[in-house]
Amino acid sequence: MPRLGQHFLTDKNALKKIAGFLDLKEGDAVVEIGPGHGELTEQILNNELRIKNTEIKIIAIEKDEQLAESLRKKFEARGNVEIICGDALKLLPSIIHNSLFIIHGYKLAGNIPYYITGKLLRTISELPEKPKISVFTIQKEVAERLAAKPPKMNRLAASVQFWAEPEIALIIPRDSFRPIPDVDSATIVLKKGVQKGIKTDAYYKTVRVLFSQPRKTILNNISNGMNISKDEARSKLKKAGIDENLRPQNLSVEDIIKIAVAFQ
Rank of each mutant, 00 (worst) to 15 (best):
K90I: 02
L71A: 10
Q264G: 13
I56P: 00
G27H: 01
A260K: 06
R208I: 00
S159C: 04
Y204K: 04
G105P: 03
E42T: 11
R50T: 14
E42G: 10
Q6M: 08
G36T: 07
V194T: 14
A88Q: 08
F75K: 12
L120Q: 06
G193V: 06
L22A: 07
R174W: 00
P150E: 11
K152D: 11
Y203K: 07
E76I: 12
V31W: 03
Q66S: 12
N227A: 13
M1W: 02
V31K: 07
P166G: 07
V261P: 00
K107Y: 01
A169D: 03
I56M: 05
R234A: 10
T217A: 08
L156P: 00
T137R: 08
L190H: 01
L251G: 01
A233Q: 08
R215I: 02
A109F: 02
I96C: 08
N47W: 10
V135L: 07
N250W: 03
A88Y: 14
A233C: 04
A19P: 00
E76G: 01
I44K: 05
P248R: 11
V253L: 10
E126D: 11
E144D: 12
K230P: 00
H97E: 14
I198V: 13
R122M: 07
M153C: 06
D255I: 04
G241S: 09
K196L: 05
I84Q: 10
Y203M: 08
K107A: 03
K236Y: 06
N47Y: 05
P93E: 01
P166W: 01
V142I: 14
E144C: 02
I172S: 10
K12I: 13
G118K: 11
P179V: 08
D184W: 00
Q249Y: 04
L237A: 09
I222Q: 09
N220V: 01
Q43P: 00
A157I: 04
V81D: 02
Q43F: 11
L146T: 05
K90S: 14
Q6E: 09
Y115R: 13
N111H: 05
Q213K: 15
Y115A: 12
N53G: 14
I56W: 00
P113Y: 05
I171P: 02
K107D: 03
K107S: 06
I242A: 05
S212I: 05
I44P: 01
K119E: 13
G105K: 04
E48T: 11
L100N: 10
E129D: 04
T123K: 12
L121K: 08
S94R: 13
C85V: 04
M153L: 11
A169S: 15
D255Y: 02
S99Y: 09
D23M: 07
I188N: 09
P151R: 04
G197E: 03
R155F: 02
V160Q: 04
S229W: 09
G197S: 11
N98E: 10
K107N: 06
M226P: 00
P93W: 13
D175E: 15
Q161N: 05
S212A: 15
K52G: 02
